[in-house]
Nucleic acid binder design. Sequence first.
DNA 1: TCAGACACTGACCGATCGGTCAGAGAAAGA
DNA 2: TCTTTCTCTGACCGATCGGTCAGTGTCTGA
Lengths: 192, 192
Amino acid sequence: MIRRTPRTHGEILAAAARRFAVTGYKGTSLQDIAREVGCSKAAVLYHFAGKEALLAELMAGPISVLCELDERISALTGAAAQQAAAEGFVDLAVRFRGEIALLRGEFPELLAQPAFAHIHLISERLIEAMTGPDGGQDARVAALVLLAGIAEGCGTFADIPDEELRPALLAVAQRVLVTAAPPPTPDHQHQD
Amino acid sequence: MIRRTPRTHGEILAAAARRFAVTGYKGTSLQDIAREVGCSKAAVLYHFAGKEALLAELMAGPISVLCELDERISALTGAAAQQAAAEGFVDLAVRFRGEIALLRGEFPELLAQPAFAHIHLISERLIEAMTGPDGGQDARVAALVLLAGIAEGCGTFADIPDEELRPALLAVAQRVLVTAAPPPTPDHQHQD
DNA sequence: TCAGACACTGACCGATCGGTCAGAGAAAGA
DNA sequence: TCTTTCTCTGACCGATCGGTCAGTGTCTGA
């Protein structure tokens, strides 16, 4: 029972991540992945129940971190929730930028699948938190632009190391989010 | 020579735009479009040389505006170019948000096609302009997050009319862009 | 009335997709 | 040595893709 040759499972996963990152989930065939690994398509399907299973395993890490972030935020309100959401999402995006990048533009359809249904709810709560205590339409637009910009952009920062990208994104987040609604009357106009 | 029944060409284009916006370019088949119009797939291919031709005609508007913006920016430098790039891109994104949305995540592959090769160069020049006179890595990150965030996010703001979305996005742009390199030349610092 | 242009259809094409399946080959325990 | 288990393969499946093609009905100008 020594289960020799542990090579393939991890190799296939890594190859799938590489191909997905370049050509996207839909744009990558099982044949492409098999070619990258150097085995048959059937071998890929021997180790994984299907193409979806491959994606699910690849996204397990970032998804669990996203769920943790959601729980953490749900215990907070107002500016504290906003700050935690921004910092948490930047951390997640930097750490898992490869995984996020491979979902480029396929969020709508992938999220429609039952396996990822809860992600949709979480992302909505994330935007709500990032919108902050202001709650106005401008704040919501800012939150959405930030979220989408980080998610979409972080995959293209392959040349920037984590320890430089994180503070850069955090700085952007601090600037873009509508942080305070001092009086009830809308009154934000100072900046930096 | 009266060319009666002008119905189909425009109808097909509109139906394609609708389907592309929902399921993406790759995710929409000619059959889907034909079903939406209520004709055969062959009829779609009678009016358009192919699926790519459909996309090209849909994108002709935003692309020409993008080219104009590129020319306008190329005549400017520094903060003026940055401001023009931000405002111009926001205008473009708001006006053509439907068209931009249908490219969701398919930029990499579509831009790889020779027909759209110059778009890639333009978007790079746009980012360079948005990076601004500061030129540092943080400014570049900010520019890319803004560009990606607007492009990716604007398609989801279907419930916000143009005249509200534009100032909201402009406000985000003013906040997020690194507008000045403070120590060397204190030049411009107005805001809002 | 009739030829021809136009708009369109259904059948069909080769390619590719995700996925299945019977079986081959190697290794390990008995 | 024999049997079992694991790993992997090539052939194959039905579905769907973008695209082609011969032909059909309809309208128009002569």
